[in-house]
Design a protein around this nucleic acid. Structure first.
Length: 476
DNA sequence: TTTTGAGTTGTTCGA
DNA sequence: GTCGAACAACTCAAA
């Protein structure tokens, strides 16, 4: 009799069919399955604009896939405890299954929900579908969480191998009764006025199928050159898997297992290392839940940040006068994504050249990135700012001109995103303010008019940053 | 408990 | 143009 009671699979950041432990467990019970997505806008960090756009596409793809398999995705908005209780009531479901999320606020919410459900006689169980290793599994010999990546990596790769991915169910036993679902469009996830998502639509296809396409393409075309090409923003030298991983349209297990079977080499190893970086960030957030809001090194509480709103706006809009920085910020705004190398350059620029708080950068990335992930975002901003556990040394100030010349020597990236200076020869492209008047004229560039003059002087800003960082060391 | 070696992605300066 | 050192000190993780 209980086997006929439906099972609710509460989908969250695991918007996929394959390698979905909660879904798999539900199907295995033989009972009708009710896949449910709840839009919870009150727990933790509310989704940023770009992520909301992505979610819309993800849910559309997921609903279509579930329909093909014989069931219907139910979508509701509201407080998850209330929604779950309502659906249990409506359907007589006896079980709720989900895959764990590891953000502090979500952990707390889910814990309360689990105990509430169980108190009400409903079976509730959670699974790991998001991490190769549980955050409490990898420990130093002294039993502490890792704070340094390299030993974390060594421990991860010598630990028992993560489980193999689960196959996608071929058929899902749908629920015959009636359950009401919101209409996705009523959530108004994508922007309307102004419609800033044009570039996102041109760049991305959310969903499980596209995620696997990215893995295949990366394997076929990119991985052997990865070590070098991953640093060249003008090329497609990276996997671009981040948004798919962030929404769980592919699992790290699927990626890890496939990569493990590729031909061994520096590219393969380097890529797998990046997957472990994702784990590292998630583990850090689990053990240091304050990471998104507060510097992990307490000394940074007193850092003399500036609050220059005009500079912040110039950075956000890609009008700093440093071409590589502006190119990155515009790529971000246009596509919801930025190349890894350039993320470092723009982040260093915000924190060190402009001395703006890393939290302002974190907030902007959170709102504009389709791959916005609380753990990665926080860990990486803290790394750049130097206040993380395993952070960049204070004297590492990226020189945006050198970075441009080194990694975008042919100017492909800057010319694509900063077209108003595209006519400049390579020699001046990354430092237009040094170009001879004649070259500027030929390229149709009028500094301060068609393209901004640098908002800070590199040398001056560097000295200022070093002085500021020295202050928190000595406590002067 | 103490010691030891090491720590994602850089820049600048002077020889 | 190339190369090595300095830029700091601290904390982490394992031996």
């Amino acid at each position: 009799m209980t086997s006929d009671a439906p099972v609710i699979v509460w989908l969250r950041r695991d918007l996929r069919i394959a390698d979905n432990p909660a879904l798999q467990a539900a199907v295995a019970r033989g009972a009708p399955v009710i896949p449910l997505f709840i839009l919870d806008e009150d727990t933790g960090w509310p989704l940023g604009g770009a992520a909301r756009w992505w979610l819309n596409g993800s849910l559309t793809a997921l609903a279509a896939k579930l329909a093909k398999l014989g069931t219907t995705l139910i979508m509701r908005r509201g407080a998850p405890d209330k929604v779950l209780r309502a659906i249990v009531q409506e359907t007589g479901a006896a079980t709720v299954l989900w895959n764990r999320c590891y953000e502090p606020a979500v952990i707390a919410r889910d814990k309360a929900i689990k105990s509430d459900l169980q108190k009400g006689g409903i079976s509730a169980e959670s699974f790991n579908g998001a991490l190769l290793f549980e955050p409490w599994e990898l420990k130093t010999q002294a039993g502490n969480p890792f704070k340094v990546f390299t030993p974390f990596w060594r421990t991860a790769v010598s630990a028992p191998a993560p489980r193999k991915p689960l196959p996608a169910p071929k058929k899902i036993h749908g629920y015959g009764g009636k359950v009401t679902s919101d209409v996705l469009t009523s959530w108004k996830l994508p922007p309307v006025k102004p419609d800033w998502a044009v570039g996102l639509r041109d760049t991305w296809i959310p969903g499980e199928a596209a995620a696997q396409d990215h893995v295949d393409k990366f394997h076929e075309e990119t991985v052997t050159e990865y070590v070098k090409s991953r640093d060249i923003p003008g090329e497609t030298g990276t996997s671009r898997l981040s948004p798919y991983l962030a929404f769980g349209e592919i699992s790290p297990h699927q990626v890890w297992h496939q990569a493990n079977h590729w031909e061994p080499g520096a590219g393969q190893a380097g890529f797998m290392r990046q997957i472990i970086w994702r784990e590292f960030s998630a583990h850090l957030l689990y053990h240091f839940p304050q990471m998104p809001e507060a510097p992990l090194r307490p000394a940074f509480a007193d850092f003399p940040w500036t609050r220059d709103k005009k500079a912040l706006r110039a950075w956000q809009q890609g009008h700093t006068g440093y071409p590589i920085v502006d190119a990155g910020m515009r790529q971000l705004w246009h596509t919801g994504w930025m190349h890894n190398r350039v993320r470092m350059v723009v982040a260093s620029f915000l924190v060190k050249h402009l001395l703006l708080p890393w939290r302002t950068g974190e907030d902007w990335f959170w709102d504009t990135l389709v791959d916005a992930d609380l753990a990665n975002n926080a860990a990486n901003w803290q790394w750049v700012a130097g206040c993380g556990t395993d952070a960049a040394p204070y004297f590492r100030v990226f020189n945006p001109v050198l970075q441009g010349e080194k990694f975008d020597g042919d100017g492909a990236y800057v010319r694509r995103w900063v077209p108003e200076i595209a006519g400049l020869p390579d020699a001046w492209l990354h430092k237009p303010w040094e170009a001879p008047d004649m070259e500027l004229k030929k390229a149709g560039v009028v500094l301060g008019k068609t393209y901004p003059a640098p908002i800070v002087d590199h040398k001056t800003a560097r000295i200022r940053a070093l002085a500021a960082f020295k202050k928190i060391r000595t406590g002067d």
